[in-house]
Simulated assay, not measured.
Amino acid sequence: MVIDGKLQLRVLSCSLHRSSKTFWTTTGMFPQELIIGFPKCVKISKVAIQCYLVRTLRIERSTSKDPVGFEQCIEKDLQHTEGQLQMEEFPLPEFQATYLRFVIKSAFDHFVSVHRVMAEGTAENT
C-alpha cells in the first residue's frame, strides 16, 4: 500500500491471516525465532509488534539474498500486564533489510504468542 509516497509494509498480520483470533506461538523453549522476508531490500523506519508474555525481544536484520548474516538492531525487555497484549513500537534509524529476525530470548511463561508484526518504510530502488 502506498501512502503519501511511502510504501507501508504490513509484514505479518495474525500469522498471515486477517483474523485477530489467529497467532504464532512458541514451542516452549527459548530462545525462539521468527524470520520475515521481503521480496527485495527495503528501507525500514519503524517496526511494531503485538505479542503476549514476551519478556526479552531482540530484532535483527539481514541484507543478504538468503536469511543469513543477521546483525542486531535492538534488544528490549518488554513490560507485561496480565490479560493484555503487549504492543511495542520500535522507531529505527532508516536502515536497509531483506529479512527481519525477531528473537524471543525469554518470556513471562512457558509459551508466548505473536499476533501481529508490522514494518513501515520505503522500497529501495534496486
Rank of each mutant, 00 (worst) to 15 (best):
residue 1 M to F: 12
residue 1 M to W: 07
residue 4 D to Y: 15
residue 5 G to D: 14
residue 5 G to Q: 05
residue 6 K to P: 14
residue 8 Q to K: 11
residue 9 L to I: 14
residue 11 V to H: 01
residue 14 C to R: 12
residue 15 S to R: 10
residue 16 L to Q: 12
residue 17 H to I: 00
residue 17 H to M: 02
residue 18 R to V: 00
residue 19 S to A: 10
residue 20 S to I: 09
residue 22 T to R: 09
residue 24 W to E: 13
residue 25 T to F: 11
residue 26 T to M: 14
residue 26 T to H: 06
residue 27 T to A: 08
residue 27 T to S: 14
residue 27 T to C: 11
residue 28 G to M: 05
residue 32 Q to P: 00
residue 33 E to N: 12
residue 33 E to R: 04
residue 34 L to M: 13
residue 34 L to Y: 12
residue 35 I to R: 13
residue 35 I to C: 06
residue 35 I to Q: 05
residue 36 I to H: 05
residue 37 G to M: 01
residue 38 F to T: 03
residue 38 F to V: 07
residue 38 F to M: 04
residue 39 P to K: 10
residue 43 K to V: 14
residue 43 K to C: 04
residue 43 K to G: 02
residue 43 K to P: 00
residue 45 S to C: 11
residue 45 S to K: 12
residue 45 S to W: 15
residue 45 S to R: 07
residue 46 K to M: 03
residue 46 K to G: 01
residue 48 A to K: 01
residue 49 I to A: 09
residue 49 I to E: 06
residue 49 I to N: 03
residue 50 Q to N: 08
residue 51 C to P: 00
residue 52 Y to C: 04
residue 52 Y to I: 03
residue 53 L to D: 11
residue 53 L to F: 15
residue 54 V to T: 15
residue 54 V to N: 10
residue 55 R to S: 04
residue 56 T to M: 11
residue 56 T to S: 08
residue 57 L to F: 11
residue 58 R to N: 12
residue 58 R to Y: 05
residue 58 R to G: 03
residue 58 R to W: 04
residue 59 I to W: 02
residue 60 E to I: 07
residue 60 E to C: 03
residue 63 T to F: 08
residue 64 S to Y: 07
residue 64 S to A: 14
residue 65 K to T: 08
residue 65 K to C: 09
residue 66 D to P: 06
residue 67 P to Q: 06
residue 70 F to L: 03
residue 70 F to Y: 01
residue 70 F to H: 04
residue 70 F to T: 03
residue 71 E to N: 09
residue 71 E to Q: 06
residue 71 E to P: 13
residue 73 C to L: 07
residue 74 I to G: 01
residue 74 I to F: 01
residue 76 K to G: 03
residue 76 K to T: 12
residue 77 D to T: 04
residue 77 D to N: 05
residue 77 D to K: 02
residue 78 L to S: 00
residue 79 Q to R: 09
residue 80 H to T: 02
residue 80 H to Y: 13
residue 81 T to I: 07
residue 82 E to C: 11
residue 83 G to F: 05
residue 83 G to K: 02
residue 85 L to S: 08
residue 85 L to F: 15
residue 85 L to G: 05
residue 86 Q to M: 14
residue 88 E to R: 04
residue 88 E to S: 09
residue 89 E to W: 01
residue 91 P to T: 01
residue 91 P to V: 02
residue 92 L to F: 10
residue 93 P to S: 08
residue 93 P to R: 01
residue 94 E to S: 03
residue 94 E to P: 07
residue 95 F to L: 11
residue 96 Q to R: 11
residue 97 A to I: 15
residue 97 A to M: 09
residue 97 A to P: 13
residue 98 T to A: 08
residue 99 Y to W: 09
residue 100 L to C: 05
residue 101 R to P: 01
residue 101 R to S: 00
residue 102 F to V: 00
residue 104 I to H: 05
residue 105 K to A: 10
residue 106 S to M: 10
residue 106 S to C: 14
residue 107 A to K: 00
residue 108 F to G: 09
residue 108 F to R: 02
residue 110 H to L: 10
residue 110 H to I: 08
residue 111 F to A: 06
residue 111 F to L: 07
residue 113 S to T: 01
residue 115 H to F: 08
residue 115 H to D: 14
residue 117 V to N: 02
residue 117 V to S: 04
residue 118 M to E: 05
residue 123 A to G: 08
residue 124 E to I: 12
residue 125 N to R: 13
residue 125 N to Q: 10
residue 125 N to V: 10
residue 126 T to W: 13
